[in-house]
Design a protein around this nucleic acid. Sequence first.
DNA 1: GCGCTATCCTGACGGCGTCAACATCGACGG
DNA 2: CCGTCGATGTTGACGCCGTCAGGATAGCGC
Lengths: 226, 226
Amino acid sequence: MPDPDDRSAPETSAPPSEPPAGPKPRRPYHYHHGDLRTQLLAAAEVVLAERGLEGFTLRECARRAGVSHAAPAHHFGDVTGLLTAMAATGFARLHDTIAAEIAAAPHERTARYAAAAKGYMRFARDNPQHFALMFRHAVLDHTDEALCTAASAAFEQLVGLVAELRATPAPLAHPDTRLDVAMTWATIHGLATLVLAGHFPFPSGQGDREATITATVEAAFRRLAG
Amino acid sequence: MPDPDDRSAPETSAPPSEPPAGPKPRRPYHYHHGDLRTQLLAAAEVVLAERGLEGFTLRECARRAGVSHAAPAHHFGDVTGLLTAMAATGFARLHDTIAAEIAAAPHERTARYAAAAKGYMRFARDNPQHFALMFRHAVLDHTDEALCTAASAAFEQLVGLVAELRATPAPLAHPDTRLDVAMTWATIHGLATLVLAGHFPFPSGQGDREATITATVEAAFRRLAG
DNA sequence: GCGCTATCCTGACGGCGTCAACATCGACGG
DNA sequence: CCGTCGATGTTGACGCCGTCAGGATAGCGC
């Protein structure tokens, strides 16, 4: 079984289990070809990015992985299982993206706070379909353990950031941390969601759209922090 | 053609076009039975609320409306057309809900501002599937005129509220109205989206969940305003 | 060497959206 | 008053989908 905590980007290179094997046109179908689960996840990632969640298809994933249409059932049960597994890795990757952005920021509370928001937005922009999947409640199995732990880890990261911001008396006057957390998450999540839905205010681009968005996030969270 | 600006809740009562007509068992199918378009929209509303967007089906809508599976095509083209029409009425209803909440609030800037947010949240809570549909970019036709005008009206309502809030020098220090609008919309939209996705922080209910959410919205927007 | 189980295939089923072909109704012009 | 014509419904078909049942294959412990 592949490592379920694998957070790396999907690899499209075939494992060495398929040598060219000369002009033999095709083997009479190989059962047990190694780690189909990983390859299915990789294929699903491509399908999701290409076709979106509306055009996502279990059979297409199987096709890309070179197996029959019923093969995924043995690893994921049904389509919900596959999407849930993808969502779990998505939360893990979101966590890593935010952590990387924080690590690259100057070691100062407000800057780290804004950097986290920038990381959130960057993940959403770079993986729009994956991001949308993670919050599409109806298509996920919320009893799945991997999903819960991955989502919780990302949430705890957020709580930690807010706590760090409030460690000194200056910022975020309201004493209720829950409200602070809710506000922080809602603001960045709302920004990301609206941008992805094409509803970002004033998108008619004079100038760079990306820069505008990043600047908005930066300004919003510096204001939120102070 | 029915009024495309109809914002009332769907009516389930049959139009008087079907008199009992004695014991005649059934007419050999009535073509032109009045306003199928309206009835299809009403049926679609029920299907959406019951099954969600994932379980939404054109054929089921046709079944509920008592017509054949291909009938909707004559009024909406394809499923995108129907969903787009529903999204348009959704934006109109959101606008009305917010307006009603503002009208019921004390005539003071901050209170009206918070009331609008409360209206936004109330609409999302009372029509979760409809609300989700309105922001599901991939299933809507964004060249549709009715959708554009309805969405723009709701957006202009938001812009007006922010402008009203900034009319006196006190609140929302940042001079950039665009940032204020973005922040306002993102915050309330993020709150609504996260609540609907079941990701609202600390949902484990000691006490009334609804009250907690409403109080959070209230507090968040009073803080945003001042 | 032998079954056991995980893995994978084939084939089938019902449901879906869409299209093409046909039926009917209402309206409008002769 | 009648004929035609477009708008509005119906029927049937197509291909695709997810899922399930049943059979094939391969590796592994005994």
